[in-house]
Design a binder for these strands. Sequence first.
DNA 1: AGCTTGACTTTGA
DNA 2: GTCAAAGCCAAGC
Length: 116
Amino acid sequence: MSIKNKIDSKRNFFEDVFEVVKLIPKGRVTSYGAIARYLGVASSARMVGWAMNASHTEKAVPAHRVVNSQGLLTGKHHFVPPSAMQKNLEKEGVKVVKDKVQDFEKKFWDPAKELL
DNA sequence: AGCTTGACTTTGA
DNA sequence: GTCAAAGCCAAGC
C-alpha cells in the first residue's frame, strides 16, 4: 500500500504533508508547491508551509529538506537556530550558498514523479 | 460567521 | 535581474 493511498484515505493536511516530507530521500530537496501538487492542492503551497509550521510537534519531519520553488531556504527562520537548516542540508550533501540550494534542479525531488 | 495571517507560486512590468 | 500583485486554502482570533 502506497503512501498516496494512505493520504487519500485520511485527507488530513498536516499528516499528509508530514508523510510526504518524511519520504524525501537524504541529500534531496523538494518544494512546497511540489508537495502541494502531490496532495492535490497545487495552488495552496502556502498551506504546505503552514502545515510545516506544525511539524515542530513531529520531530521526525525533515523540514530542512523543503525549500521554495527557487531553492531558497525561506523557512530557515523558523528553525532554531535558523542556521540549523543550512547546516543539516550540507551535512546531507546538499550545498547551500546564501540561503540557496546549489544544483537545485539535480537535488530536486518531486513526489508526484519519484513516488509515483 | 467574518477577517487576518502565512515556511508559496506564477505572471507581468 | 528585482519588484509588485493576484490566487490559493486552512487555522486562529
